[in-house]
Every structure is written in C-alpha cells, then in structure tokens.
C-alpha cells in the first residue's frame, strides 16, 4: 500500500483501521472492481477482522526465525528429458477467446500509459 495513508510507514497504533478509501485502493491493487454498496459492506468487516488479528504483534521476539513452510524443503530437480504435456488444443480448451492457436486478450495498454 503506498504511503499516502494515515498509517504511512507502518501501523502506528494498536488498533489499526482501514478507511473506506483504503479499501477502495486495496481493491484496485487486487484488480477487483467494487461497487459503492460493496465498499460500504466490506470496509467495516475488514476492520473487525484486522482488529482481531492485530493481537499477533509483540507475540514473537526478534530472535524467533520465521516459518514459511511447515516441513523442511529442499530444491527439487528432475532430469531434463521430454515428457508428454498438453496439446495446444487442450491448453486452449478453456480460453475465453483464441486466435491462431493463441490466447486472444484485450488490448494490454491503457490510453494514458
């Protein structure tokens, strides 16, 4: 989230809140259009959730290592040999639009870009 919010630089208080504008901004970052009614509905709910999960701050001391994954992981490699994959027709079978064996998408750039 860009640092234009009232919490610029990180959560300053024990009771963080997300404003309606910030929820709109999050929706924009997440590429979801939200109607005015949805914003009214979701913003207070997100605040309640956020308030309850904020309790996590201060539980772990600085020397506790983070866990990203429950069991120890090592990189997995395989031999670089050919194996069967999807055909082009199979890969395109769910495409909303296709052309010349390719996914056809709307224009990528906005006019202001």
């Amino acid at each position: 989230m860009p640092e234009t919010s009232e919490h610029a630089g990180g959560p300053a208080s024990d009771h963080p809140t997300i404003s309606r504008d910030e929820v709109a901004h999050l929706a924009d970052l997440a590429r979801i259009d939200l109607s005015e009614a949805e914003l009214d509905h979701l913003a207070p709910q997100l605040n309640v959730i956020l308030e309850s999960i904020a309790s996590i701050q201060g539980v772990a001391s600085a020397d506790v290592p983070p866990t990203s994954h429950p069991l120890p992981l090592t990189n997995v490699y395989r031999d670089d040999v050919e194996r069967p994959g999807l055909t082009a027709a199979e890969a395109l079978s769910g495409a909303p639009e296709e052309e010349q064996q390719r996914f056809k998408v709307p224009r990528i750039l906005g006019y202001d870009q």
Binding site: M1, P2, E3, H7, A8, G9, G10, P11, I18, L26, L29, L46, L50, I53, I56, Q57, V59, A60, V64, P65, P66, T67, S68
Partner: peptide, 20 residues
C-alpha cells in the same frame, strides 16, 4: 493489505514467527 510495503513486517512477518 498484509503483504503491502510498510505492513509486511508487522503482519505477515510476525505471523511467520508465531508459526514457528
């Protein structure tokens, strides 16, 4: 939100530590 710059350490980073 939890992965946003400025909040990542306070939320996601803390959660990963509590997971430990």
């Amino acid at each position: 939100y939890a992965l946003s710059s400025g909040y990542y350490d306070a939320y996601y980073g803390q959660a990963q530590k509590v997971r430990t």
